[in-house]
């Protein structure tokens, strides 16, 4: 048990100091800027590749992934609008029913 306690004591000291050093390093613009630029470049490359693939699919007259996403999103929006209307109808019914009861 003694050995473990000593290990933990040293570990905690190491963990705390290492975390602080790495955090300071990660916050540095020298790390953040290149990391951001690299990620953005990767994403632009992926977007360009996806666009080329979509153009090829479109040339064949087939729906692209983006077309399908837009169609599904539109269906979801329609579902929400229908629920909006149901709520409004329920409110109107309640409003008209209330005076009759009175």
């Amino acid at each position: 048990m003694m050995g473990w306690d000593v290990f933990k004591q040293y570990f905690n000291a190491w963990e705390s100091s290492t975390a602080n050093v790495v955090e300071a390093w990660l916050k540095s613009p020298l790390v953040l800027e290149p990391a951001g630029t690299w990620l953005s470049m990767m994403m632009k490359t992926k977007a360009a590749a996806d666009k080329n693939a979509a153009t090829a699919w479109g040339a064949l007259g087939l729906p692209t992934k983006r077309d399908q996403e837009r169609a599904l999103h539109a269906l979801n929006q329609i579902q929400s609008r229908l629920i909006d209307l149901e709520e409004q109808l329920a409110d109107m019914k309640a409003a008209t029913a209330a005076p009759k009861k009175a």
């Binding site: 613009p29 953040l32 800027e33 290149p34 990391a35 951001g36 630029t37 690299w38 990620l39 953005s40 990767m42 994403m43 632009k44 490359t45 992926k46 977007a47 996806d50």
Partner: peptide, 12 residues
């Protein structure tokens, strides 16, 4: 950070 392009990320 200036290098992080959120539009590129979401487009990708």
């Amino acid at each position: 950070s200036r290098g992080f392009d959120v539009r590129a990320l979401v487009d990708g």
